[in-house]
Structures are given as C-alpha cells and as structure tokens.
Amino acid sequence: MKIILADALTIAAKDLRNELKSKQTSGMMIIFSSLVILIFSFAFDPTNNTVKAIIPGLIWVITIFSGLLGLNRSFISEQENDSLTGLKVAPIDPSSIFLGKVVANLVLVTIVQMLSIPILFLLFDYKFHGDLIWFLLIVLTATIGFIVIGTFLAALAANAKNSEMLLPVLLLPLLSPLMIGAVQATKIVLEQEGITDAISWLQLMAAYDLLFFAACFFLFEYLMEGS
C-alpha cells in the first residue's frame, strides 16, 4: 500500500511538472473559467439580489467544465510516445497510475477553483459571511468525487475515438447525484441556513465518494490490462 502511494506520488509529480512547464491545460482551464464568470456577470445584473441564488450553481458549472478540459488531457497526454505503455510495463501496481492521475487532476482543479471562486464572488459583489470551514469541506468533497469518477472515465474514454466527446457524455449523468448534493449544500452554507441540512448532504457526498473511489480503484487495473 505504501509503495502504491509512493508510485502514485511519483506519477502525480511527473504530471504536475509537465504541466508546470507547458502550462497548456491549466492555462486553458483558467481562461475558460474566467470567461464563464465574465459572461454570466454581464448576462445577469449582479446588483439584483436574486442573482445571488445562481452563485452555488455557477461554482459547480465552472468546476465541472473547466475540470473536463484537464481530465481529457490527463490520459491523452500519455499517448504521445505511447508512454502509458511505459507505465504498464513498469513494476508498479496499476492502481498507482489511477491514484497518481487523481492527485494530479485534483491539484489542477483545486488551483483553478482557488482562483475562480474569489473572482466569482468579487464580480457578483457577494460578501462571504458563511462558515468558511464548511464551505471548503463541501467544495473539496464534491471535487474529489468529480475527479475520481472523471479520471476513471477519462482512462476509459482515452482508448476510444472521439474521446473528448465521449467523456462528458459518460461523466455528466453519473455526476448528477453528486452535483445536486454539492449545489444544495453550497447554497445552504452561502445563505447561512441551518448547517445540519448541509451536513446531511455532505454525508451523502462522502458516501458517494467512497463508493466510487473503491469501485474505480479496483476496476482500474482491468482498464490497463491488454487484450
């Protein structure tokens, strides 16, 4: 287990170093999320109080759609020089490839969130009064679930033609329960309603995360297995 973790970190570090050098994916993700925020801030009048109601939804729209850009790249980038085969013949457990990719994608998406959510609040003139800890916990839990399923499906889709189109088609339906929970819980925290409701959504999301993490973790080696 310790070795799986160490290998996963090696792979994640390699991916992040790659990204740090090219800044291809992260650049696209940040530009995309900024554009979404900008367009929405023009489309809706931020001074109108009812507009605040769309903020929770917007947070997740940004996360999912900019995240998709990163997820698409994470396995496609391994096809250059067929380096995924290099990982397959290496003496590592296939699960560590999955774990490494999850960590790298999570870091990328979290960075985009850390930049875009404050900008979102700023442009929509929203003063954050809610409980920051709960807010972060909710965002993190839902993001982990999204990345776990997304990474698994990205690996699945990478073998197919038109994988860029296949990934959202597979991913979005699977994510809907998680996203309903995420939007509801975020709304509760941002509007400072009873935190107990948010906690039950959080529990639901955590259960969803665990379930899918276990399933993806164990199924991943079948994805990596050759014919």
């Binding site: 390699k14 790659n18 067929d82 380096s83 085969t85 013949v89």
Partner: peptide, 14 residues
C-alpha cells in the same frame, strides 16, 4: 524485464 518498444515511452516536455 527491460522492454524497448517501437515507441520511446518518453515525455516530450521533460
């Protein structure tokens, strides 16, 4: 086992 295939398995940004 050391396997050298048709492809290099290397990462071009590194």
């Amino acid at each position: 086992i050391g396997y050298l295939g048709h492809e290099s398995f290397l990462y071009s940004a590194l």
